[in-house]
Design a protein around this nucleic acid. Structure first.
Lengths: 126, 126
DNA sequence: ACATACTATTGTCTTGTTGTCAATAGTCTT
DNA sequence: AAGACTATTGACAACAAGACAATAGTATGT
């Protein structure tokens, strides 16, 4: 083997998930809330604009609750003016805002990664 | 709710995984093999160039075996000239080539999606 | 007033992907 | 012959994601 020895031993990644995959749901939710507080059912519809249409509601609600637990968003039960059951309104926190910035940075890296791959492919396709 | 009614009912996605996440391992492996036949251990090192360094070997080997089962690659045991145990050499199939093309198309869409997100963010950051 | 439809959220179960770790095994160096 | 490096495979556990059902409030039509 030409140059560069192996050292892979002991890389130590976070458990369970995601060696290199790019989730979009969370950043998109943060982004939508970045534009103003909103509730799950409305967000559900807006996801469509970012190519995240037909996503199961429970997935979105769960993500919101988890983001709440993480402290990226804060939620309050909306008062009266609803036609239907009470809604939980989410609002971005300072921490969530910082998280969004980090995520955008991460997505830019991911984009570069994808670009690299595509470029390499374009050199000798088919 | 202004415009657009709900119709989410009955979207029917593939089971188990990945509503919208972007895996890079498989396309990168296909791309590397697209440049010429190779074996797992060598590919493992080349992954680094695409930002997929420190990935557990078994993950890569498993991906290769699965791609073999899918028919995207074909493998043969390499003859003599190895310093170490015999190596399984993978080669891209026609089907794998088509798969790669599809994947590149998919990645381009994903890139656009990311671009959209980043653009929206850039309009009103911080 | 009651049934139905729509709005809205939560909980649970199953499945499959992913990472870790251990086992196997061949060759080269000392 | 021991140890280091090359190379691949197998089994297991954790966990995340999707499907689906349950709950529940309001509005509308009859």
């Amino acid at each position: 083997m030409p140059g560069g020895g192996q050292k892979r031993r002991g890389a130590r990644r976070r458990r369970g998930y995601s060696g290199r995959s790019i989730r979009l749901l969370e950043p998109v939710l943060l982004l939508l809330l970045h534009a103003g507080a909103s509730h799950g059912y409305a967000l559900l519809d807006q996801l469509d604009e970012f190519g995240l249409g037909d996503l199961n509601p429970s997935v979105v609600y769960r993500a919101l609750r988890e983001m709440d637990e993480q402290g990226w968003v804060r939620s309050v039960w909306e008062g009266e003016e609803t036609q239907g059951p009470p809604r939980r309104v989410y609002e971005l926190t300072k921490c969530g805002n910082e998280m969004l910035a980090l995520w955008v940075k991460d997505l830019e890296e991911a984009k570069d990664q994808i670009d690299g791959l595509i470029d390499t492919y374009r050199c000798r396709p088919g």
